[in-house]
């Protein structure tokens, strides 16, 4: 059973992701946060279990995805959680910053529900999801 944390301020995207996740892996546990501030609040207070993987949007209010990613990677407690950035931006610059800041992947938000499912399935089933102790990155 895997726990996936989805960070995005867009409720439509949350709905789509949640549905796509349950279709990709019916046993997966879906958790969510609406931005970086909410994410750290939930992680720090233990309201949310430490997830196996984080999917995170870039463009969010209060604390955006890149800031949140850097903050995660600075934190002794959370830096081992793999993060995949999930954004509509096709900017090469954004992708580069994300990967350099410690994300293990960058997925452009698809325009198609089936594509979202396929993406999540591929990530969950093809070993991109490492736990800290499984495989050294």
């Amino acid at each position: 059973m895997r726990t996936i944390l989805f960070v995005d301020d867009d409720q439509d995207d949350q709905l789509l992701f949640q549905e796509a996740l349950s279709e990709a892996d019916s046993t997966a546990v879906y958790l969510s946060a609406t931005d970086g501030v909410d994410l750290f609040e939930k992680l720090n207070t233990g309201k949310t279990a430490t997830p196996d993987l984080i999917f995170m949007d870039i463009n969010m209010p209060k604390m955006n995805g890149i800031e949140s990613l850097k903050e995660l990677k600075r934190s002794e407690r959370f830096k081992s959680i793999p993060v995949i950035m999930y954004s509509t931006s096709s900017s090469k610059e954004h992708q580069k910053i994300c990967l350099e800041s410690g994300a293990i992947g960058y997925v452009e938000k698809p325009n198609d529900f089936d594509q979202i499912c396929a993406r999540i399935k591929s990530i969950l089933h093809n070993g991109l999801l490492f736990r800290q102790n499984d495989v050294p990155l």
Partner: peptide, 20 residues
């Protein structure tokens, strides 16, 4: 343009879901 495209993407996704 980013903000304009965002709702369009949603229209496209959800309408496709309805269709399918």
């Amino acid at each position: 343009s980013h903000d304009l495209k965002e709702p369009l993407r949603k229209i496209e996704i959800f309408v496709k879901m309805i269709q399918e």
